[in-house]
Nucleic acid binder design. Structure first.
Lengths: 241, 241
DNA sequence: GCTTGTGAAACGTTTCACAGCA
DNA sequence: TGCTGTGAAACGTTTCACAAGC
């Protein structure tokens, strides 16, 4: 699910010197945001950006930006800033999106359809290579942007994961069936899941999980509106297991 | 957007004694998860739960659960735990979802359609009362579960927000138009926005913002898979402005 | 015996402030 | 002068451990 807490406790990548260091989970989460901003600067033909500029629209201080990036190496030039193109490449490498990932989608409902038609995933390096559903009426239907994907029955799941070397599963299924489905996917060899089911799900230690609960985000908004004067800093709302 | 760091810096609610206290942002985010778990326990006819049971599937310690809840008052009974029904009511009250919220949706694309057809929002107290789009071909089309909502032109936005007293906007629109649309919604009197546009957005201090960037969550997954051995704790992935 | 609520300690993250480089 | 990288300080969150209540 997509809601909350989250100690995405950062694993232990290595920095330029090859030393293995601890990287704060929050820093890793911000990396994706820096990348998104940098891609925007690239479209504006900017060659370099300073930490101040990079943090501005994200509501982050320049010091925060520098600290975050410094966890992974020394990328900036004093007096100049960070080279936009180089930094994009570096962050992609760090996040592991400098190559493409094969994903499958489980649940050919409205949300699944919406995700399939969204081109943003491909641009970021994620390719949805198969769609599954347990509804016999949906099997075989064309799906996705060019209706090039046929909805497959769950029976073929193991086979497809193996043959197509699928590493990531995206779950757009009801809460009640989320845990068993994740278990089955793990069994099939999936290495990570992005779940949109509004329920907690657990996975073995060698498998990764991200969860997005859309209702949780609305609840956070309600809280901010009624209890506070809104978030002090911009928030990319977190989700938890 | 829904991705990113996020200091959803917790506003300053008051606890049972009426004292205004600081509540950690992460604790507020977890409140939604506790609520979701509690609703599950309620369906199982459970009368009470202990902090240990409540935290288990969320990957949280019992101490964490108790500390979080204690920020808002004393709800538990030593030796017994928390009364499920009462706790649900308390958390709803704290989050502000003990009443219903009117929301509008901007962007009648695939994602917008998926969100509209999702009944989970209503159950949580959020009612989508209007849908807008800038595409003339979509104006007037029936939308939503019973096709009861007609897509409206943006010209009528101010009027609708005022007449229907809409407080929350849900944005399913392209990145390029997200900031101007948010500005316009704020102008119209909206108090909070949930944005799915893959871009940073800023709002004035009196307005709340939650942002969910679906691609960001996949990137975090890629990082966990390639750099780490997965998240140490379950994660409801956060999003940021 | 079981479980809460809570100070105090441990731990983690962010901010500060500045030396050093372009 | 402008900006990075980074120790050290400040701050925030989580964990511990235990007294008190059911």
């Amino acid at each position: 699910m997509a809601s909350d807490e989250s100690r995405a406790e950062s694993p232990v990548p290595e920095n330029r010197s090859g030393r293995v260091v601890h990287v704060p989970g929050p820093a890793v989460r911000r990396l994706s945001l820096y990348l998104r901003e940098l891609e925007g600067f690239l479209r504006q033909q900017r060659d370099t950006v300073s930490s101040l500029q990079l943090g501005r629209t994200l509501g982050l201080t320049d010091a925060q930006v520098r600290k975050d990036l410094a966890h992974f190496g020394q990328f900036g030039q004093p007096g100049v800033g960070y080279r936009v193109e180089e930094m994009i490449g570096q962050i992609r490498r760090i996040l592991g999106t400098d190559r493409s990932w094969r994903a499958l989608l489980v649940g050919a409902g409205n949300l699944g359809r919406a995700l399939l038609s969204y081109r943003g995933f491909e641009r970021k390096g994620f390719e949805i290579v198969a769609v599954f559903d347990n509804d016999p009426n949906k099997i075989g239907l064309g799906f996705g942007p060019g209706l090039t994907l046929n909805v497959l029955p769950l029976e073929s799941l193991d086979e497809v994961v193996g043959k197509l070397r699928v590493e990531i599963a995206i779950l757009c299924i009801p809460a009640e069936v989320a845990q068993p489905m994740v278990d089955r996917l793990v069994q099939a060899g999936i290495r990570g899941s992005l779940s949109f089911a509004p329920t907690a799900v657990t996975v073995p230690a060698h498998v990764s999980l991200a969860a997005v609960d859309l209702a949780v985000h609305l609840e956070q908004l309600a809280f901010q509106i009624s209890a506070g004067q809104a978030a002090a800093k911009p928030v990319e709302t977190p989700d938890a297991t």
